[in-house]
Amino acid sequence: MRKTIGLAAILFATALPATAQLAPGVRMPPEIGASYGRLGKAMMAHDAAGVRSVWAEDFVVNSPDNRVLTREEVIAVMEHDFLDYKDFRKHITFVGEKPEVTVVMGYDTMVPLKGPGAGKQVMRPFTDVWAKRSDGWRLIARQATIAAAE
């Protein structure tokens, strides 16, 4: 059973999006939680500068359509309105912290409005790799593949 974090805890402890859930016993580092919150807002607003403030310049993603994309390729897709979702929820099941790298694993559930799984609720397992850089924690890599659609 997953524990849903209340809005007050989200805003003051981790700043994760209100739709985020942490598995029992999982602790999100505050700076990374805040970055997830900023990233979610930027993605929903199609705000390229906001996305760039979280993703490292050398960010790569193994995308749901099984292509490896760079930061700028994903931002181009976002700016063309191809990354629109409704009922997006992030379920975090593991956070592994090291001094210079943090790995966050879990799954997203959402209904994509375009692209793979459009119009259907999908489950997308993910692995995010965060690296400590001179300007703070930056997301450097993401794997996200659609595992199931209703």
Rank of each mutant, 00 (worst) to 15 (best):
P64Y: 02
H80Q: 15
L16E: 03
W55Y: 10
V26E: 03
L69K: 14
A118N: 11
E72V: 09
S35C: 02
V104F: 00
P30N: 15
R52H: 04
M110P: 00
A18W: 02
A20T: 04
V129Q: 00
G119W: 00
A118V: 08
V122S: 00
P29C: 05
V68M: 15
K114I: 06
V103K: 08
P116L: 11
G96H: 02
V60P: 01
A118G: 15
M105I: 08
A20S: 07
F82V: 13
A45K: 11
R124D: 00
A42I: 10
A45Q: 15
G40A: 10
I32R: 00
V54L: 12
V54A: 03
P17H: 04
E72T: 12
M123R: 02
Y85W: 15
T14D: 12
F94G: 08
P64W: 01
D87K: 03
H80F: 08
Y85R: 03
R67H: 14
E79G: 04
E100F: 05
T14S: 13
D81H: 13
A23K: 14
R124S: 00
P17M: 06
Q21R: 06
G40L: 03
R124K: 10
M28I: 09
S63K: 14
V129Y: 01
L22D: 02
R38C: 04
R38E: 06
E100A: 09
Y36F: 14
M110A: 05
M28V: 07
P30H: 15
P99E: 05
M43C: 10
Y85Q: 07
T93D: 14
M43W: 09
T14K: 01
H46N: 15
G119Q: 01
T109A: 01
E73G: 06
K41C: 14
E31Q: 09
P112H: 07
S35V: 00
V104H: 04
M78Q: 12
